[in-house]
């Protein structure tokens, strides 16, 4: 391997730039001062205690879990169908249909949120946690489809034929062979959808009505400077959880690749 000290130092600086703000999180989450500023004034866990005691926060967390778990399940199920149809079958209109399903990737969330809101108002439908799921499935579906397409593509078509040949029906072949082989992809898709959904703010804010999701709750706390350390404590927990979930997702994705004997070709997206 060639070496390039200049580039390497730049790469490290870049990682510092990327992670710098995130590293500040725990620093001030444990800092015994209301004002987030140097110098640090000593260690405390009181922001975490304040966070634990916040009833509104717990309600928001419950709402968010409801939204994110449902989103992850629905988006992954729909993603499995779309990806399987795209990889396994030839049918007319495929590029257009798949393009439409992937379109939310490039649409501003405010447009998605506003247009859905207009339709909901028009229909006289209430805005609540359930309507947030509608929006979140829309924006997580492209991620699920992308992950599942890769998962299905990595499977040799002969696997299912071999199972058929050995006496299984099309349905039992799918259950016994294909499903276990794409399971890492399914887990990965589930975790990614969950992560996107629980962090999402715009759709949760505009379509949620009186059901306050976690991100909307955090946003609300910005008005109170005294709440900032508690938000940072909460952020520490959320970021730790995100990184954990992503690491699990990445682990399963790689295991999926390794399992079918493929070559690893990068990460998500």
């Amino acid at each position: 391997m060639k070496s390039a000290p200049g580039l390497r130092s730049y790469a490290i600086l870049y990682l510092v730039f990327l992670y710098g703000p995130i590293l500040i999180l725990p620093l001030f989450a444990f800092n015994n001062a209301t004002v987030v500023s140097f110098p640090l004034s000593g260690f405390t866990t009181k922001w975490f205690s304040e966070m634990m005691a916040d009833q509104a926060l717990w309600r928001a967390l419950r709402t968010s879990l409801q939204i994110s778990l449902s989103t992850a399940v629905i988006a992954t199920a729909l993603g499995v169908m779309a990806a399987r149809a795209a990889v396994r079958y030839r049918w007319p209109g495929k590029p257009g249909v798949m393009g439409l399903i992937l379109l939310p990737l490039v649409l501003p969330e405010i447009i998605i949120a506003m247009s859905m809101l207009i339709v909901l108002i028009w229909l006289g439908a209430p805005q609540m946690w359930f309507t947030v799921i509608l929006g979140h499935v829309l924006i997580t579906l492209p991620f699920s489809v992308t992950i599942m397409t890769a998962a299905f593509q990595s499977i040799d078509v002969s696997f299912e034929e071999a199972a058929l040949d050995l006496g299984e029906t099309p349905i039992s072949s799918f259950r016994l062979i294909t499903l276990p082989l794409v399971m890492p992809g399914i887990i990965s898709s589930f975790l990614i959808s969950f992560t996107i959904s629980i962090d999402e703010y715009i759709i949760a804010n505009f379509l949620g009505g009186n059901d306050t999701a976690l991100s909307v709750y955090i946003y609300g706390q910005f008005r109170f400077p005294a709440k900032v350390p508690m938000v940072l404590a909460l952020g520490t927990c959320l970021v730790a959880m995100s990184i954990l979930l992503l690491t699990i997702a990445e682990y399963f994705r790689r295991r999926g690749v390794a399992r079918v004997g493929g070559k690893d070709s990068g990460g998500f997206l």
């Binding site: 996107i196 959320l238 995100s242």
Partner: peptide, 8 residues
Amino acid sequence: PFWTSYII
């Protein structure tokens, strides 16, 4: 970092 809460 992209996958961590943007609000945070």
